[in-house]
Computed example of a mutant assay.
Amino acid sequence: MTIAHKILVLNGPNLNLLGKRQPEIYGRETLDDVAMECMRLAAELGLSIDFRQSNAEHELIAWIHEAREIVSGIVINPAGYSHTSVAIMDALAACPCPIIEVHISNIHRREAFRHHSYVSNVATGVICGCGTQGYTLALRHLAADLEKAIR
């Protein structure tokens, strides 16, 4: 990759508790572990990464607005906001870049209310049920698409 593309990786509510909260569902890796692996892979792929987490919907929306014209892609794990936030969906819809939605668990094998994601309506792609590897799959996909776009 010849151009350092910037990717925003956003994490929604309760992901700061990753590794501690329901490890039987979400695993034992912490969000710091995920961030380190994403940064390692991003460097390998020639990407620049901005990795963030917030429990506050308005903060996630503000970060999406800030990123609109300065990132080449967004990876988002909206967590519980997937199923409730039209506002996050609307903010993402205003972004011209590719958006990959990531869920650590398979939301379709869980409670019925988790089966619908507003974010999926505007995402370029959705990865769920692959554990924290979903983040690296998303980065690899974005890198491949961005490489094709500059050829």
Rank of each mutant, 00 (worst) to 15 (best):
G27H: 08
E147M: 13
T30I: 06
R68N: 06
P98K: 13
F113V: 02
A67I: 05
W63E: 14
V34W: 00
Y81V: 01
H65V: 12
R28C: 05
A62S: 14
E57Q: 14
M36S: 14
P78V: 03
L31W: 05
H65L: 05
E29W: 01
L17P: 08
A56Y: 12
N11M: 01
S72P: 02
L8T: 05
E59Y: 04
G27E: 07
F113I: 01
N14L: 09
T2R: 12
L47M: 09
F51I: 07
L47E: 09
H5P: 04
R114S: 03
Q133D: 15
S117K: 01
M89E: 14
R28S: 11
Y118N: 05
K20D: 00
N106Q: 09
E44A: 13
R110N: 04
N77A: 09
I49F: 11
Y118I: 01
A144S: 12
Q53Y: 08
R40D: 15
R140Y: 06
C95H: 11
D33Y: 07
Q133A: 14
A112D: 13
L18V: 04
I150E: 15
H58P: 05
I100H: 09
N106E: 12
E37H: 14
P96S: 15
I76Y: 07
D145W: 13
H65P: 03
R28G: 02
I64C: 04
G80L: 12
R140Q: 15
G12D: 03
G134V: 11
C97E: 13
A149R: 14
I107P: 08
L41Q: 08
H58Q: 11
P13H: 01
Y26F: 15
I49A: 09
E111A: 11
R151M: 10
T136Y: 00
S85P: 05
T84N: 05
D33T: 06
